[in-house]
Design a protein around this nucleic acid. Structure first.
Length: 230
DNA sequence: AACACTGCCAACCGCCGGGAT
DNA sequence: TATCCCGGCGGTTGGCAGTGT
């Protein structure tokens, strides 16, 4: 099955009424496009970004004449239009790295993606949900088609709590990193080993690197192996 | 051939943090 | 200081296409 081809179905356009009443503001209606992007929209977006750069997404959306919200433009750019994006065919090497990084970081898809050049957090998340989570736990039922609708936050789980608690630490990368992922009793969700890392600031500093740094990967794998031996 | 089921991807949603006002 | 706005993030879902019955 080929999933790389762009799909450009008919755009559903409808009136979205912002929740201005809640915000105590006057009610405003605005036509915005939602759903799959058309080739024409892609072209307009790329043109504007080529001139103004990928920032100020609201302005980009307006300048491109797209009836899209800035968020949607950002997502489209980051996940699809951005240069040097690799699509499909996750290599064994990449898969191994994803597994190791996930063991270390949990569902921090953007951080994991930052270590895989040309891969997006969305792609890695999708790959994890459709391939790797099943590999780790073949009995696991796919999470899709959940009955709930509205509100994307699930009840906070152990791992989520722990990951959230370290979020800021990892983000500003100034404090020693502690990832004490949950170890659970038998029959629970797959457990992650706990570890404490007096990580030096540079170790998780991805900000100054443009692409996959194999030296970093080697360091990471060494670090990871050392930790597991400990 | 027709239908149901499943896999996968793209895109949306709500939450959150940080900067601007 | 309080509030608003924007961008980033992870979770979730709609819908197409392939596969099974």
């Amino acid at each position: 099955m080929l999933h790389c081809k762009p799909r450009y179905p008919i755009i559903i356009s409808f009136t979205m009424e912002m929740n201005y009443e809640k915000m105590g503001k006057s009610r405003v209606s605005k036509e915005i496009n939602r759903g799959a992007w058309t080739a024409e929209e892609d072209r307009k977006l790329a043109e504007v970004i080529a001139v103004h750069g990928p920032k100020k997404w609201k302005t980009v959306a307006a300048k491109a004449g797209l009836n899209r919200c800035g968020k949607s433009c950002r997502l489209r750019w980051l996940n699809y239009l951005r240069p040097n994006i690799k699509r499909g065919n996750i290599t064994d090497q990449e898969e191994d790295l994803i597994l190791r990084l996930h063991r270390l970081l949990g569902n921090r898809w953007s951080l994991i993606a930052g270590r895989l050049p040309g891969r997006t957090d969305n792609e890695i998340k999708n790959y994890w949900n459709s391939h790797l989570s099943k590999k780790l736990d073949p009995n696991q039922k796919p999470p899709r088609r959940a009955a709930r609708k509205g509100g994307s936050r699930r009840p906070v789980e152990k791992e989520t709590q722990l990951v959230e608690s370290t979020r800021r630490e990892v983000r500003d990368q100034r404090t020693p990193l502690t990832v004490a992922a949950a170890t659970t009793s038998e029959g629970d969700e797959p457990s992650y080993p706990s570890f404490h890392c007096e990580a030096d600031d540079d170790f998780f500093d991805f900000s100054n690197e443009s692409a996959l740094n194999w030296e970093w990967v080697s360091r990471f794998i060494q670090f990871n192996q050392l930790h597991h031996q400990a």
